[in-house]
Amino acid sequence: MMERPLDLDAVQAFVRIAELGSFTRAAEAMRTTQAAVSLKLKRLEDRLGLRLVERTPRYVQLSAQGAAFLGYARELLEAHERALAVGAQARQRLTIGISDHVAGPELPALIARMNAQDPQLLIEIRIGSSGDLLQGFDRRELDAVIVRLHAGRNDAQVLAEERMGWFASPGWQPRPGEPVPLATLAEPCGVRALAAQHLDAAGVPWTEVFVGGGVAAVAAAVMAGLGVAALAPRMLPFGAVDVGPRLGLPALPRLPVLLHSRVGPGRPRDALDALAAAFRQAVRG
């Protein structure tokens, strides 16, 4: 039958007393009371059947047994720290790609929801275009991606379908006789291609006046009055207006938010499910 193991807190108290030469300073280092440190030491001495520390009114000194035990005590604490480090290194990681056309202003709250689901999970999130993220997913650089368009694939879970519109700033007015000025994301962008296809099919002339490196930049250009952008309403600051009906622009279809994942059952899957549920709620409003 295995004997009762040593109390690591008591061993640490002994090492602190030995290093600092004082019960008071040991208590301060351990952020506890002198009485608690004394109790820990007594518990260790009782467990070992040895007197480790000689106490006098003026100083604290290790006994011969205490001096012999000190090296072993330090080795025990160092081994404990190494064991904890192994646990930290083994921390599970979840790498998710989220399309810039999907990651809206709710993203901080969605990340907080994932963290609440599993605070010990290491979460890595990359923002990019749907096409680039899908390529990264296929190269197994990403565990899961949340993207905007099907891109000719059928291996995704539909989280929600989101309304799209032609948005401009409240005071923006088109110039008579000129093509519709568009603010878009840089190619390749599925939403940009979709918007161009619908305008061309409807015979509506258009011109690109702003190309942004992200949806936030496109939204800023819209609110600055540069022109019109095809976006989901939640991606724009409050006050942007859908000018599609007023300008006679073609209606855009509802676009899906899609999850591609290879995450199996377990803690990462639970966190991913929490994120997917949060996206459903955010998209559906």
Rank of each mutant, 00 (worst) to 15 (best):
A221L: 09
E178R: 09
A232M: 10
F210I: 11
V228F: 02
F210D: 12
R126K: 10
R163L: 09
R192Y: 06
A151I: 03
D132P: 00
G239E: 12
L133I: 08
N154A: 15
G136W: 06
A160H: 05
G136E: 10
A229N: 05
P181Y: 06
M164E: 08
A151N: 11
V215I: 07
V145G: 02
P237Q: 12
N154F: 03
S169F: 01
P245S: 14
L199Q: 02
E162W: 01
L149D: 14
L226V: 04
P174H: 13
A195H: 08
V228I: 15
S169Y: 00
L159K: 07
R148H: 03
W166L: 01
G131Q: 15
L247N: 09
G212M: 06
V191C: 07
F210S: 14
A219Y: 01
S129P: 03
G239C: 07
G190A: 14
P174S: 11
V204Y: 02
G212H: 11
L236D: 08
L231T: 07
G131P: 00
P188N: 13
P188R: 10
E141A: 13
I146R: 00
E178K: 10
D200K: 10
L134R: 14
I146S: 02
A156Q: 01
E208F: 02
A144I: 04
G212P: 09
R139L: 14
L231Y: 02
L134A: 11
D242I: 07
D138W: 03
M164S: 05
D155S: 09
E124C: 04
V204T: 13
A224K: 05
G165N: 11
L247T: 06
Q173P: 01
G212C: 09
M223S: 11
G136F: 00
E208P: 01
M164Y: 12
P181T: 07
G203M: 07
P245L: 13
L231M: 15
A224F: 01
R163W: 03
A221H: 08
G203A: 08
D200S: 15
R192S: 11
E124M: 06
V211I: 13
S169C: 12
R126Q: 13
F210W: 08
G190S: 14
R139W: 08
